[in-house]
Design a protein around this nucleic acid. Structure first.
Lengths: 169, 169
DNA sequence: TTGTATTTTCAGTAATTAATGAAAATTAAG
DNA sequence: CTTAATTTTCATTAATTACTGAAAATACAA
């Protein structure tokens, strides 16, 4: 194994280990990492061999990555196998992650809160009013995060971030 | 069970179910949700009873929530039991979440990338140069997210968010 | 200091998620 | 249309995470 291959393998392995901190499974993170640094689109067989995983596992996680929008299927003329490549533009990755975070985290949370807020609205007791107030306050935070991610993920302009950083400084 | 109690229970249960999407376990999310809407600080026994969980489970998750900074232990005069309360200021919650996301997600990811970037720097092949380039690009994205979360979590001023939203619009 | 209250720990169990590998289903080439 | 390549599915197993409950450790009151 060359130094290059060792570096690549370490990167993919460690990236995979971090996956579970991000709420995705290790294999999905490893596949993504591998495709991110691959100069060419790869087949299921390529990935099975590179990562020592089963065909079923590869298939499941490739489909999940496609649903995230982080990778796409590529048609290769003259080939019957599906090829996959990763989205490599870091700005686009950023938007995808923000969008998916919104979809999987802040939107469902806000829906739960809104339901409980509307149900608690008509409760007259002091305790009920306090619950209503607290849930409303919490929903403001969640909606705010939702709003920020919505805006970030729909901005087609990578110059937006320097502007945000300017405000922060 | 009153309507109020039903709403509270639904909120806690559903919040708990969302926890696994956020990378925390269901019980930890439920404890946090319960403390967030509790008018008073609560004991381990209170939580055990309210959420039907074991003492060991309660202890483990309370300690984890304390390490996140989302709850704190409260000294009650004349009481031997530990009481816990949640941080209820939504702006502070926002900062805590940003800080912990940074600590658990973007910082470790950036460390992995930086290590691999420095190791790939001396590789002369075209493939090595391409790997170096792609890892560097990816690290820019991760460092950017890191930077934003650093700034957000250390700003002691809740007026910063309207400014960010203004830039986004 | 003793006894009891309280918290923490941890061996073992339970629950959930991830993965395998072979069969079923689908697709494409001849 | 047939055959083979390829992908998807799914029953089962494996791995990982979460939880229990009792014992150990710690803290506090008398």
């Amino acid at each position: 194994m060359t130094e290059l291959e060792q570096i690549k393998q370490d990167y993919v392995t460690q990236w995979g280990a971090l996956g579970s901190q991000w709420g995705i499974n290790r294999t999905m993170a490893m596949i993504h990492a591998h495709l991110l640094v691959s100069p060419t689109a790869l087949t299921t067989d390529d990935l099975m061999e590179a990562l020592s995983i089963s065909r079923g596992n590869a298939n499941t996680n490739l489909r999940e990555l496609v649903s995230w929008g982080l990778i796409r299927s590529v048609v290769m003329r003259g080939e019957r196998k599906d090829y996959y490549e990763a989205e490599k533009d870091v700005w686009k990755i950023f938007c995808i992650v923000a969008r998916e975070r919104k979809r999987r985290e802040t939107e469902p949370a806000s829906m739960v809160l809104q339901d409980c807020i509307s149900r608690s609205k008509s409760i007259k007791s002091a305790e009920g009013k306090e619950l209503h107030k607290q849930l409303t306050s919490l929903n403001e935070f969640v909606s705010l995060a939702n709003n920020i991610m919505e805006k970030v993920s729909t901005k087609g302009d990578s110059t937006i971030i320097p502007k945000i950083l300017k405000v922060l400084n």
